[in-house]
């Protein structure tokens, strides 16, 4: 699969302290194992991989060509909290777990940072237990929470 990222996306990736190669790795791993969430309305795909204790996400779409498919990266982001087990699945979402071919839900999952486990909002697949964090949560809510953990632990 070819993976394409615009200059704008590459700039965002760099600003967020990520490497384009890591984002490509996330996509390849997700496509290889079919471990990803797919937006049933837009076809947008959310994939993640833990790289050096950081969970890196790729938000991308796949265009299927005659000979091969192309992945177009829309965005990439990360969080340092470690995702744990699902606490609850509260309401339906637009996401489907590709691995289970089952609906994913908005819910709550355990999140651990600096040895402290608390709950946080996430997209969850109750069938396989996989958990994803959407971009607005990772870049705002969880990023601020990580900062608070660091400040309060100091």
């Amino acid at each position: 699969m070819d993976i394409k990222a615009s200059d704008q996306v590459k700039e965002t990736v760099a600003k967020r302290g990520l490497k384009v190669d890591d984002v490509m790795d996330v996509i390849k791993t997700a496509e290889g194992g079919n471990k990803k969430a797919v937006d049933k309305n837009t076809g947008k795909i959310l994939a993640k991989k833990v790289i050096n204790n950081v969970t890196v996400y790729a938000d991308y779409n796949v265009e299927k060509g005659i000979l091969k498919s192309h992945a177009n990266v829309n965005s990439a982001y990360s969080h340092r909290m470690t995702l744990g087990k699902i606490v609850n699945a509260t309401e339906p979402s637009n996401w489907t777990c590709a691995h289970c071919n089952a609906p994913a839900f908005l819910g709550t999952a355990e999140m651990t940072y600096m040895g402290v486990s608390r709950n946080g909002p996430a997209v969850v697949c109750p069938k396989c237990g996989d958990v994803w964090v959407e971009e607005y949560l990772a870049t705002k809510t969880l990023a601020a929470a990580e900062g608070l953990f660091e400040k309060k632990k100091a």
Partner: peptide
């Protein structure tokens, strides 16, 4: 219990 959103600082 199952309606609210739980953040790490709730």
């Amino acid at each position: 219990k199952d309606n609210l959103i739980w953040s790490p600082f709730t």
